[in-house]
Protein backbone atom coordinates (compact mmCIF):
# COMPACT_ATOMS: atom_id res chain seq x y z
CA UNK A 1 0.00 0.00 0.00
CA UNK A 2 1.51 3.30 -1.00
CA UNK A 3 1.66 6.19 1.39
CA UNK A 4 -0.67 8.24 -0.71
CA UNK A 5 -3.30 5.53 -0.76
CA UNK A 6 -3.21 5.01 3.02
CA UNK A 7 -3.49 8.75 3.50
CA UNK A 8 -6.59 8.68 1.36
CA UNK A 9 -8.09 5.93 3.46
CA UNK A 10 -7.38 7.78 6.67
CA UNK A 11 -9.05 10.83 5.26
CA UNK A 12 -12.00 8.72 4.25
CA UNK A 13 -12.42 7.39 7.80
CA UNK A 14 -12.30 10.80 9.35
CA UNK A 15 -14.33 12.65 6.79
CA UNK A 16 -17.04 10.13 6.00
CA UNK A 17 -19.53 11.07 8.66
CA UNK A 18 -21.25 7.71 8.67
CA UNK A 19 -18.18 5.69 9.50
CA UNK A 20 -17.20 8.21 12.12
CA UNK A 21 -20.59 7.74 13.60
CA UNK A 22 -20.03 3.98 13.68
CA UNK A 23 -16.83 4.44 15.63
CA UNK A 24 -18.16 7.09 17.91
CA UNK A 25 -21.21 5.19 19.13
CA UNK A 26 -19.40 2.13 20.55
CA UNK A 27 -16.74 4.32 22.14
CA UNK A 28 -19.40 6.49 23.69
CA UNK A 29 -21.16 3.37 24.95
CA UNK A 30 -17.93 2.13 26.53
CA UNK A 31 -17.38 5.39 28.35
CA UNK A 32 -21.01 5.62 29.35
CA UNK A 33 -21.04 2.07 30.68
CA UNK A 34 -17.93 2.67 32.77
CA UNK A 35 -19.30 5.87 34.21
CA UNK A 36 -22.75 4.39 34.67
CA UNK A 37 -21.42 1.38 36.60
CA UNK A 38 -19.42 3.63 38.92
CA UNK A 39 -22.51 5.70 39.56
CA UNK A 40 -24.61 2.59 40.05
CA UNK A 41 -22.16 1.10 42.52
CA UNK A 42 -22.04 4.30 44.50
CA UNK A 43 -25.81 4.70 44.61
CA UNK A 44 -26.27 1.04 45.47
CA UNK A 45 -23.82 1.15 48.36
CA UNK A 46 -25.34 4.39 49.59
CA UNK A 47 -28.82 2.93 49.45
CA UNK A 48 -27.80 -0.28 51.20
CA UNK A 49 -26.01 1.53 54.01
CA UNK A 50 -28.87 3.91 54.79
CA UNK A 51 -30.69 1.45 57.12
CA UNK A 52 -27.57 1.14 59.29
CA UNK A 53 -27.01 4.89 59.36
CA UNK A 54 -30.59 5.66 60.29
CA UNK A 55 -30.89 2.78 62.75
CA UNK A 56 -27.57 3.14 64.57
CA UNK A 57 -26.69 6.77 63.94
CA UNK A 58 -23.45 8.11 62.50
CA UNK A 59 -21.72 8.11 65.86
CA UNK A 60 -22.42 4.48 66.72
CA UNK A 61 -21.59 3.38 63.22
CA UNK A 62 -18.49 5.33 62.20
CA UNK A 63 -17.00 6.48 65.51
CA UNK A 64 -17.46 3.52 67.79
CA UNK A 65 -15.03 0.66 68.28
CA UNK A 66 -17.64 -1.76 69.58
CA UNK A 67 -18.16 -4.50 67.03
CA UNK A 68 -20.59 -7.05 68.39
CA UNK A 69 -22.65 -8.41 65.56
CA UNK A 70 -25.60 -10.57 66.46
CA UNK A 71 -26.42 -13.07 63.77
CA UNK A 72 -29.78 -14.36 64.98
CA UNK A 73 -31.07 -10.93 66.05
CA UNK A 74 -29.15 -8.27 64.06
CA UNK A 75 -30.87 -5.33 65.75
CA UNK A 76 -29.43 -6.31 69.12
CA UNK A 77 -25.83 -6.04 67.92
CA UNK A 78 -23.35 -3.16 67.87
CA UNK A 79 -21.66 -2.29 64.62
CA UNK A 80 -18.98 0.35 65.23
CA UNK A 81 -16.38 0.32 62.50
CA UNK A 82 -13.76 2.64 63.97
CA UNK A 83 -11.43 -0.24 64.86
CA UNK A 84 -11.43 -1.42 61.24
CA UNK A 85 -11.17 2.09 59.82
CA UNK A 86 -8.16 2.60 62.01
CA UNK A 87 -6.85 -0.80 60.91
CA UNK A 88 -7.11 0.23 57.28
CA UNK A 89 -5.43 3.58 57.89
CA UNK A 90 -2.67 2.10 60.06
CA UNK A 91 -1.78 -0.71 57.67
CA UNK A 92 -1.78 1.75 54.78
CA UNK A 93 0.31 4.26 56.71
CA UNK A 94 2.99 1.75 57.68
CA UNK A 95 2.91 0.21 54.23
CA UNK A 96 3.58 3.62 52.68
CA UNK A 97 6.37 4.37 55.16
CA UNK A 98 8.13 1.24 53.94
CA UNK A 99 6.85 1.08 50.38
CA UNK A 100 7.12 4.70 49.21
CA UNK A 101 10.89 5.18 49.81
CA UNK A 102 11.54 1.72 48.40
CA UNK A 103 9.42 2.36 45.33
CA UNK A 104 10.74 5.85 44.64
CA UNK A 105 14.30 4.66 45.29
CA UNK A 106 13.81 1.85 42.79
CA UNK A 107 12.35 4.30 40.29
CA UNK A 108 15.37 6.60 40.62
CA UNK A 109 17.67 3.62 40.31
CA UNK A 110 15.93 2.41 37.17
CA UNK A 111 15.77 5.82 35.53
CA UNK A 112 19.04 7.42 36.58
CA UNK A 113 21.58 5.03 37.99
CA UNK A 114 21.27 1.54 36.58
CA UNK A 115 23.24 0.38 33.53
CA UNK A 116 20.89 -0.60 30.69
CA UNK A 117 21.05 -4.34 31.30
CA UNK A 118 20.38 -4.15 35.02
CA UNK A 119 17.69 -1.52 34.40
CA UNK A 120 15.90 -3.92 32.09
CA UNK A 121 16.14 -6.78 34.59
CA UNK A 122 14.91 -4.62 37.49
CA UNK A 123 12.03 -3.23 35.49
CA UNK A 124 10.91 -6.67 34.33
CA UNK A 125 11.16 -7.93 37.90
CA UNK A 126 8.95 -5.10 39.18
CA UNK A 127 6.44 -5.70 36.39
CA UNK A 128 6.37 -9.37 37.32
CA UNK A 129 5.65 -8.36 40.91
CA UNK A 130 2.58 -6.48 39.71
CA UNK A 131 1.31 -9.66 38.11
CA UNK A 132 1.60 -11.87 41.20
CA UNK A 133 -1.91 -12.58 42.54
CA UNK A 134 -2.46 -11.15 46.01
CA UNK A 135 -3.33 -14.53 47.47
CA UNK A 136 0.19 -15.74 46.70
CA UNK A 137 1.79 -12.74 48.37
CA UNK A 138 -0.57 -13.28 51.31
CA UNK A 139 0.43 -16.91 51.54
CA UNK A 140 4.07 -15.92 51.45
CA UNK A 141 3.34 -13.55 54.33
CA UNK A 142 1.48 -16.25 56.24
CA UNK A 143 4.17 -18.89 55.94
CA UNK A 144 7.30 -16.72 56.17
CA UNK A 145 6.60 -13.28 57.64
CA UNK A 146 4.20 -14.31 60.41
CA UNK A 147 6.44 -17.01 61.96
CA UNK A 148 9.44 -14.71 61.56
CA UNK A 149 7.71 -11.85 63.37
CA UNK A 150 6.43 -14.27 66.02
CA UNK A 151 10.00 -15.45 66.52
CA UNK A 152 11.63 -12.03 66.89
CA UNK A 153 8.87 -10.27 68.83
CA UNK A 154 7.39 -13.08 70.93
CA UNK A 155 3.86 -12.14 69.85
CA UNK A 156 1.57 -14.33 67.80
CA UNK A 157 3.01 -12.84 64.62
CA UNK A 158 -0.36 -11.82 63.20
CA UNK A 159 -1.30 -8.16 63.12
CA UNK A 160 -0.70 -4.83 61.46
CA UNK A 161 3.05 -5.37 61.02
CA UNK A 162 2.90 -8.34 58.63
CA UNK A 163 -0.06 -6.76 56.83
CA UNK A 164 1.93 -3.57 56.24
CA UNK A 165 4.94 -5.51 55.03
CA UNK A 166 2.80 -7.49 52.61
CA UNK A 167 1.17 -4.28 51.38
CA UNK A 168 4.55 -2.58 50.99
CA UNK A 169 5.50 -5.32 48.54
CA UNK A 170 2.20 -4.94 46.71
CA UNK A 171 2.38 -1.15 46.25
CA UNK A 172 5.96 -1.33 44.99
CA UNK A 173 5.07 -1.95 41.32
CA UNK A 174 2.54 0.92 41.24
CA UNK A 175 4.91 3.43 42.79
CA UNK A 176 7.95 2.30 40.83
CA UNK A 177 6.28 2.15 37.43
CA UNK A 178 4.50 5.48 37.73
CA UNK A 179 7.53 7.06 39.41
CA UNK A 180 9.81 5.94 36.60
CA UNK A 181 7.45 7.47 34.06
CA UNK A 182 7.50 10.73 36.01
CA UNK A 183 11.28 10.79 36.17
CA UNK A 184 11.51 10.00 32.49
CA UNK A 185 9.40 13.06 31.74
CA UNK A 186 11.98 15.38 33.31
CA UNK A 187 13.62 17.20 30.35
CA UNK A 188 17.10 15.93 29.58
CA UNK A 189 18.32 19.53 29.31
CA UNK A 190 17.86 20.03 33.04
CA UNK A 191 20.08 17.11 33.86
CA UNK A 192 22.63 18.07 31.21
CA UNK A 193 22.74 21.64 32.45
CA UNK A 194 23.24 20.49 36.02
CA UNK A 195 26.06 18.14 35.08
CA UNK A 196 27.60 20.86 32.91
CA UNK A 197 27.65 23.14 35.95
CA UNK A 198 29.86 20.59 37.67
CA UNK A 199 27.26 18.92 39.89
CA UNK A 200 27.87 15.28 40.76
CA UNK A 201 25.34 12.66 39.77
CA UNK A 202 23.92 12.48 43.28
CA UNK A 203 23.61 16.27 43.50
CA UNK A 204 21.84 16.27 40.16
CA UNK A 205 19.43 13.63 41.34
CA UNK A 206 18.38 15.17 44.60
CA UNK A 207 18.62 18.83 43.63
CA UNK A 208 17.32 18.76 40.07
CA UNK A 209 15.61 15.51 39.08
CA UNK A 210 13.59 14.81 42.23
CA UNK A 211 12.26 18.37 42.64
CA UNK A 212 11.38 18.45 38.96
CA UNK A 213 9.48 15.16 39.19
CA UNK A 214 8.06 15.85 42.64
CA UNK A 215 4.39 15.94 41.66
CA UNK A 216 4.43 12.72 39.71
CA UNK A 217 6.30 11.00 42.53
CA UNK A 218 3.61 12.17 44.97
CA UNK A 219 0.88 11.05 42.60
CA UNK A 220 2.48 7.63 42.24
CA UNK A 221 2.58 7.34 46.03
CA UNK A 222 -1.08 8.34 46.35
CA UNK A 223 -2.12 5.79 43.74
CA UNK A 224 -0.06 3.22 45.62
CA UNK A 225 -2.05 4.14 48.72
CA UNK A 226 -5.23 3.46 46.79
CA UNK A 227 -3.97 -0.03 46.09
CA UNK A 228 -3.07 -0.54 49.75
CA UNK A 229 -6.45 0.62 51.04
CA UNK A 230 -8.37 -1.71 48.77
CA UNK A 231 -6.27 -4.83 49.12
CA UNK A 232 -8.25 -7.59 50.81
CA UNK A 233 -7.02 -11.12 50.36
CA UNK A 234 -3.37 -10.78 51.35
CA UNK A 235 -4.24 -8.56 54.31
CA UNK A 236 -6.96 -10.86 55.57
CA UNK A 237 -4.53 -13.75 55.65
CA UNK A 238 -2.04 -12.09 57.98
CA UNK A 239 -3.79 -9.37 59.98
CA UNK A 240 -5.41 -11.75 62.46
CA UNK A 241 -9.05 -10.83 61.81
CA UNK A 242 -9.70 -9.66 65.35
CA UNK A 243 -12.37 -7.13 66.18
CA UNK A 244 -10.32 -5.04 68.61
CA UNK A 245 -8.83 -1.60 68.03
CA UNK A 246 -5.08 -2.00 67.63
CA UNK A 247 -2.67 0.47 69.18
CA UNK A 248 0.61 -1.12 68.18
CA UNK A 249 1.75 -2.72 64.91
CA UNK A 250 2.03 -6.06 66.67
CA UNK A 251 -1.63 -6.21 67.67
CA UNK A 252 -4.24 -8.11 65.72
CA UNK A 253 -7.14 -6.24 64.18
CA UNK A 254 -9.06 -6.08 60.88
CA UNK A 255 -9.29 -3.71 57.96
CA UNK A 256 -12.57 -2.59 56.41
CA UNK A 257 -12.08 -4.88 53.44
CA UNK A 258 -11.08 -7.94 55.43
CA UNK A 259 -14.03 -7.44 57.79
CA UNK A 260 -16.50 -7.25 54.92
CA UNK A 261 -15.14 -10.46 53.45
CA UNK A 262 -15.13 -12.24 56.80
CA UNK A 263 -18.69 -11.37 57.78
CA UNK A 264 -20.72 -10.95 54.60
CA UNK A 265 -21.71 -14.62 54.50
CA UNK A 266 -24.07 -14.55 57.45
CA UNK A 267 -24.98 -10.87 57.63
CA UNK A 268 -28.65 -9.91 57.41
CA UNK A 269 -30.64 -6.67 57.89
CA UNK A 270 -28.76 -4.08 60.01
CA UNK A 271 -25.62 -6.19 60.17
CA UNK A 272 -25.52 -6.41 56.39
CA UNK A 273 -26.25 -2.73 56.07
CA UNK A 274 -23.42 -1.93 58.50
CA UNK A 275 -21.05 -3.84 56.23
CA UNK A 276 -22.28 -1.73 53.30
CA UNK A 277 -21.58 1.35 55.39
CA UNK A 278 -18.00 0.09 55.70
CA UNK A 279 -17.89 -0.20 51.94
CA UNK A 280 -19.16 3.37 51.77
CA UNK A 281 -16.35 4.50 54.08
CA UNK A 282 -13.86 2.75 51.79
CA UNK A 283 -15.37 4.40 48.74
CA UNK A 284 -15.14 7.81 50.38
CA UNK A 285 -11.50 7.16 51.28
CA UNK A 286 -10.77 6.21 47.68
CA UNK A 287 -12.55 9.33 46.43
CA UNK A 288 -10.48 11.50 48.77
CA UNK A 289 -7.34 9.98 47.26
CA UNK A 290 -8.53 10.73 43.73
CA UNK A 291 -9.30 14.31 44.75
CA UNK A 292 -5.84 14.53 46.27
CA UNK A 293 -4.33 13.42 42.98
CA UNK A 294 -6.35 16.07 41.14
CA UNK A 295 -5.23 18.67 43.63
CA UNK A 296 -1.55 17.77 43.29
CA UNK A 297 -1.61 17.68 39.50
CA UNK A 298 -3.54 20.94 39.28
CA UNK A 299 -1.04 22.77 41.48
CA UNK A 300 1.64 21.70 39.02
CA UNK A 301 -0.31 23.13 36.12
CA UNK A 302 -0.54 26.43 37.93
CA UNK A 303 3.13 26.68 38.90
CA UNK A 304 4.61 25.92 35.50
Amino acid sequence: MSKKESNGKLRQIFSASRSEFLVRIPLFLCAFLAFFSVLLIFLFILKESIPAISCLGLRNLFFSTTWRPNVSNPRAGSYGMLAFLSGTLMTTFFAMIIGAPLGIGTAIFIDQVAPPKIREITRRGIELLAGIPSVIIGWFGLTLLVPFLAHITGSSGYGIAPASLVLAIMVLPTITTLGTEGLKAVPAELKEASVAMGATRWQTIYKIIIPAAKESLIVSTILGMGRAIGETMAVQMVIGNARQLAFSPLERTSTLTSRIVTDMGEATSVFRSALYAQALALLILAMCLILLVRFVTRSREVTT
Binding site: G77, A150, S156, Y158, Q244
Partner: peptide, 27 residues
Protein backbone atom coordinates in the same frame (compact mmCIF):
# COMPACT_ATOMS: atom_id res chain seq x y z
CA UNK B 1 -25.06 -13.97 72.36
CA UNK B 2 -21.64 -14.27 73.95
CA UNK B 3 -18.79 -12.10 72.68
CA UNK B 4 -15.63 -13.91 71.86
CA UNK B 5 -12.33 -12.34 72.92
CA UNK B 6 -11.75 -9.04 71.08
CA UNK B 7 -8.30 -10.18 70.02
CA UNK B 8 -9.57 -13.54 68.73
CA UNK B 9 -8.47 -14.53 65.24
CA UNK B 10 -11.53 -15.28 63.10
CA UNK B 11 -11.12 -17.97 60.45
CA UNK B 12 -13.35 -18.98 57.60
CA UNK B 13 -12.81 -22.73 57.85
CA UNK B 14 -11.72 -25.64 60.01
CA UNK B 15 -8.60 -26.02 57.90
CA UNK B 16 -7.47 -22.46 58.59
CA UNK B 17 -8.07 -22.88 62.33
CA UNK B 18 -5.91 -26.00 62.31
CA UNK B 19 -3.20 -24.23 60.32
CA UNK B 20 -3.04 -21.22 62.66
CA UNK B 21 -3.22 -23.25 65.87
CA UNK B 22 -0.47 -25.58 64.67
CA UNK B 23 1.85 -22.73 63.63
CA UNK B 24 1.22 -20.19 66.42
CA UNK B 25 2.72 -20.72 69.86
CA UNK B 26 0.18 -20.23 72.62
CA UNK B 27 -2.79 -20.70 70.32
Amino acid sequence: SVDSAPSAIECASNGVVREIVSSTKGA
